[in-house]
């Protein structure tokens, strides 16, 4: 094989790989994405019940009920709208009422969510409310803690 021919093959090979990569990216950004909503957005839009989605918000105070071992019901809220969540499985340790969480699952006909996964954020910060108030008074509370 001449030197030139070998180089040509190399360049072609590179182009093929590059093309394949672009195709893969385009295909996958269509297929493998999950939409993310807050409860209000979800209620505004009509969402197909076949699509997996993620919902972010807080666990509503006094909404958590344990139906039986590992079967739970609770509400997720963004302070204006709530959604009822059904979940069967293990809850993360950081899960508690008023904690920021993200759930993954499907919506059903009554606009309730059947969750397949529940994530709680593990933040580095934790702050009791009483001290938080004090700090806010002194203007030392700048950060967006949840």
């Amino acid at each position: 094989m001449s030197l030139r021919f070998q180089r040509l093959i190399l360049i072609l090979l590179t182009l093929i790989i590059l093309g394949a990569a672009i195709l893969l990216i385009m295909f996958n950004t269509k297929q493998n994405i999950v939409f993310f909503y807050t409860p209000s957005e979800l209620l505004e839009n009509n969402i197909d019940s076949n699509i997996k989605l993620r919902i972010g918000g807080y666990v509503k105070k006094l909404s958590f009920v344990e139906k039986s071992l590992n079967k739970y019901e609770f509400k997720i809220t963004d302070n204006s709208n709530d959604l009822l969540i059904f979940y069967e499985g293990m809850l993360p340790d950081l899960f508690r009422e008023e904690q920021g969480i993200v759930i993954e699952g499907f919506i059903d006909r009554n606009k309730n969510i059947v969750a397949s996964k529940v994530y709680a954020k593990h933040d580095e910060n934790y702050m009791p409310a009483s001290i938080k108030k004090e700090l806010e008074k002194n203007n030392q509370w700048k950060k967006d803690y949840k």
Partner: peptide, 28 residues
Amino acid sequence: IYPIIIEVLTNTRISVGGPYFNSTVLPI
């Protein structure tokens, strides 16, 4: 950063998870 771009352009939020990366990065 795709989710950021999409949010800026269309105001919908998405998340790109494991399946995307598994089926692009690995074959490459």
